[in-house]
Design a protein around this nucleic acid. Structure first.
Lengths: 166, 166
DNA sequence: TATTGTTATACTCTATAACTATA
DNA sequence: TATAGTTATAGAGTATAACAATA
């Protein structure tokens, strides 16, 4: 008989459910804004934002781009295809590794992100940060950041094959 | 020219992105576990768990059941239909209001939740709580709980019509 | 052999609108 | 008239497996 783990303590349950509900509602709110103002899904926004805002060169390899955003390779190919069709990114074979594809934001992609960002920020501010103090905001970030690192480093035990990198 | 809101401060951005990524990865991990051990989607698990664990009578009106889990009425009908087909819930017209439908967990539904819960708890513990201290866990819950209330009370301005209740 | 990415395909889920029935 | 729920339908997104090409 496999022994049953102790149930989650009420504090844990509360934190877990709050986290999931907050993230769910926030994602839903943000998704609407992105759809209305930029005709983008949240996933597309994430990919685009990562390229336009996070990446110095404005480009990344497909595989690196996927991390934490999309959970299958075909899903990324699909989304990249949509973004490319919309003229927001371009794909080209990587110079160093002929197997890889480099994805690059176009000027139109940058413009779209900039058009969409103010409304996005407003939604996040109103929905997520309004009830938090500045100290609370900082505390939240400081609590979640190690969790994020932990989850990135420790894929679920069932993470079939292709999940390591870096 | 509509004036642009100030951009999010780095602390805010960090908290926002961490929150979304943590919730996304956690949901993905948990979804796998539920699929493997109970053939349930996360939404189905939420609905079932709400009935089996949260509701004293094991039953709720459709509309109340939906809150925070599903964002359209047809979506709930669809999920409730799946759960009913699987014998996990039963639907019956509400006694007091003939328009309403009462959804009730069956014994099989309760059994499934109990079968699936230990693994679920393990995933949440390993993925979310492992890197947090007890104080950190409590702090996280205390930070997110008011946000949750805030978001429940203040639907996104564009929340077309049918979103109030209680 | 392992890795990168694409394709085909099947499936799940979601949302909109039109509809029925009750309050 | 407004609310509760269902249905039909269409569209978006996801995952699996088979595949080609490069390392």
């Amino acid at each position: 008989m496999p022994d049953t783990p102790p149930p989650l303590a009420p504090v844990e349950l509360g934190a877990y459910f709050s986290l999931m509900e907050v993230a769910g509602l926030l994602r839903h709110a943000v998704e609407q804004q992105l759809r209305e103002e930029g005709d983008l899904s949240y996933v597309q926004f994430q990919l685009l934002a990562r390229l336009a805002l996070d990446s110095p060169s404005g480009s990344e390899r497909m595989t690196d781009l996927a991390d934490g955003v999309v959970y299958s390779r075909s899903g990324l190919t699909y989304q990249a295809g949509l973004l490319e069709k919309a003229g927001l990114v371009e794909r080209a074979p990587s110079p160093d590794d002929e197997r890889s594809v480099t994805v690059m934001v176009t000027a139109a992609g940058r413009a779209l992100i900039e058009r969409v960002l103010p409304g996005h920020v407003e939604v996040v501010r109103h929905q997520l940060f309004a009830p938090l103090s500045e100290a609370g905001t900082r505390a939240l970030g400081e609590l979640l950041s190690p969790v994020r690192e932990h989850m990135r480093a420790a894929p679920p035990r069932s993470a079939g094959a292709r999940r390591r990198r870096r």
